[in-house]
Amino acid sequence: MPSSEIETPAAIRRRGLSPRLANGLGIAGAAVLIYLLLAAVVPYFATPQNMTGLLANAAIAAIAALGLTLVILTGGIDLSVGGVMSLVGLATVANVGAGVPWWLAMIVGMLLGAVVGVANGLLVALLRVPSFVATFGTLGITAGAALFIADGRPTVLLPREMIAFGNGSVFFIPYLAILAVVVLAVLQFLQGSTRWGVNTRSTGDNRHVAALVGVPVKRTLVAAYATSGLLAGLAGAALTAQLSTAGPQQGEPYTLAAIAACVVGGVDLLGGKGSLWAACLGAVFLAALRNAMNLQGVQPFTQDLVTGLLIIVAVFVTVSGRGAVQTLLGRLRPAQEVRS
């Protein structure tokens, strides 16, 4: 078979590392650099005890961020993560109080989260409600329900094994971090080795094309939101195990933390691009930053400020990076108005 390689000058220029790999290496490299920097500058940062605490904190945000990554890959957002986490925490405590084994209570919590996720998915896929609005609505419902159930007060009633699961570690590696890695591995396998991953990314990349070639777009959307709810449920139960209490608002900061982890991990808010483990690294990075600020005695308010700014900057960088490409394309084609 005669085979003439297609080698336009442009193609030659574009050779080298595959963009996905280069992107991944960049993020990993940056993470190592930041770690070394923090270790050098911040006293006590690099101690094993500190690392263990940091990883446990990062793990919870990472689990929530993993589910959220799927939603963002489809081009949407899930703001209900924090509300689901609060609600599931309370439900878990209530179930355990009613005599349900703690591990079963955690599973029930995940299913509760999945139910909320499916509702989000149906709103987005069938009613075509913008995702930030639909999930903002369910955020209100879940956060409100959490307040109502808890009657505004945190509740404490947990078996010792569950608290041990939330706070214990083997060889300085917290159980929660192991849980997060397991979730990452399972999700990475499902996304990488089944149709689901391709469907998810193509739905977010170009929904029109995806529908045209026969990708089950609606089912994919519902699956993404359901997974996000499921993992938010797991994260909520894990948080309760870690804190050994369930407060009606303890999940609230995690909406922002999960979005921040994804955004810092380079997941494209416009959909189609982003990797699961980079989102996890993003969660670790943010936890490290917070931890370092804590060690340096920075006020918690300032930490919120830094997180808020970081999100805007990270999104701005990804967007303006894309903006540059669009400017180039704009030379070829008339600019299209972008409706946000």
Partner: peptide, 14 residues
Amino acid sequence: SPKLSVLENMFLGE
């Protein structure tokens, strides 16, 4: 699908 690979596009949906 522009952000997907050649291989993924060859069989997208099938």
